Amino acid sequence: MDTRAAGTLDEALGRLHATGPEFEGRLTNHGPMAVEAMVRRGQGARVHRWVDAYARRLEERPGRYGRVTGENWREALGDPRYLADWAGYFAERLAEAPWRAVLAEWWPRLLPGIAAGATHPVIRVGHAVRVLLRDGENEPRLAELAHGLGYWAARHQPLPPGIARPAAPGPAGEALRAVPRVPDPSGGINHRLGQITRLPAWDEGAPGADSGAARERLAELVRAATGYYATHGHGQPVMLVHAATAPNAVLRALPALPPELWPRSLSAAWSASAAVVAAYAPGDGPREPAEPGGVSAEELFERAAAHGDEHAIKLVDTALDVAAAHPEDGLAGAAALRAVELIDPLSY
């Protein structure tokens, strides 16, 4: 990221940090994630105008409820009344210790609640870590990590206990297609996640001691979930985005984490992706994917940025990660086109 682009990102993050992580009840503020992707993909010139339009929907940061400390954090975990307090706690921790150390300490504590906020908190953390790893740390970037970790901690939400884990087909794509739909696919995500009783145990294919295998399988999951969107995204075009973007956020965070945490990161990412599929898989099965033809990666993302919807931007961002690693994979480009086609654009 060049100096000008970095400056655009830091300015946009500063503007967005005056807003809360949620609005209109429990809708997630995607601003920091979207602007990071836009700057990363060469669309920085659109960022401030996009923030102008998107910020009309946002709300001010919530007020403090009670101080989170090293002594009471377990009681505050998963309590949304502490939304502002958790962000403040992580800001303090990041001022005291290197950000990688703070991330490594809290990552295993937060992973069991990866479904929190419909997986948005872990996605926000993944974008924040990508910036820190590639472009270095400064005040707005560390603040963004604090906001992401704080959001995750406040909305921490494990999946229902006692979920059966039958043997899964080998490839990740087959495993995703084998995930059973929840019996009552209505209502919000919490209602749907609460109905999950079975998820294939695909993640058990990576031995606990083999971090390299865990990373490879996580990359396989991201590729498969992106391809799943290309054929199944019509089930719920917005929510099924997260089946791909949540595991990709975990994949982006791995280089900043100790390798011994990688296998459990794979397991959590699989649980999140499979849970989203269980909640929103279409009842009428797959459809033929769009044909990307000769559209370049740059043009795909330019279309997403012009479209403006934050979910389309994030899905295309993930699809381009997959396409860069697997240029022969036409489903990645098809998923990008499908997101722009199915999701309503942002007016700006």
Score class of each variant (00 low, 15 high):
17 H>Y: 05
18 A>K: 12
19 T>P: 04
19 T>Y: 15
26 R>L: 12
28 T>D: 08
31 G>P: 02
38 M>S: 02
39 V>L: 03
41 R>Q: 13
42 G>S: 10
44 G>L: 01
46 R>K: 06
47 V>D: 08
51 V>D: 05
56 R>L: 06
56 R>S: 08
58 L>Y: 01
64 R>T: 13
68 V>A: 02
70 G>W: 07
72 N>R: 13
74 R>S: 08
76 A>N: 08
82 Y>N: 13
88 G>E: 06
92 E>C: 13
96 E>K: 02
103 L>E: 02
108 P>H: 01
116 A>R: 00
116 A>W: 00
117 G>L: 03
118 A>V: 14
123 I>M: 04
131 V>T: 10
136 G>L: 00
153 A>Q: 07
153 A>P: 01
156 H>N: 09
160 P>G: 09
163 I>G: 11
164 A>R: 10
164 A>M: 04
173 G>I: 07
176 L>C: 13
180 P>G: 07
183 P>G: 10
193 L>P: 14
199 L>A: 04
202 W>H: 13
206 A>G: 03
210 D>C: 11
211 S>V: 12
214 A>T: 07
218 L>D: 02
221 L>W: 02
230 A>L: 10
231 T>I: 02
234 H>R: 12
237 P>C: 15
241 V>M: 06
241 V>E: 04
242 H>N: 03
245 T>V: 04
247 P>D: 06
248 N>P: 01
252 R>K: 09
252 R>Y: 06
253 A>I: 00
253 A>D: 11
256 A>M: 01
259 P>E: 00
265 S>L: 02
270 W>C: 03
273 S>P: 11
275 A>Y: 00
276 V>L: 13
279 A>S: 12
279 A>E: 02
279 A>W: 03
284 D>H: 08
289 P>D: 11
289 P>E: 01
292 P>M: 10
298 E>V: 07
298 E>L: 14
302 E>N: 13
302 E>F: 03
306 A>M: 10
310 E>Q: 09
319 A>Q: 12
319 A>K: 04
320 L>M: 12
321 D>Q: 15
321 D>P: 12
328 E>M: 07
329 D>V: 03
335 A>C: 04
348 Y>F: 12
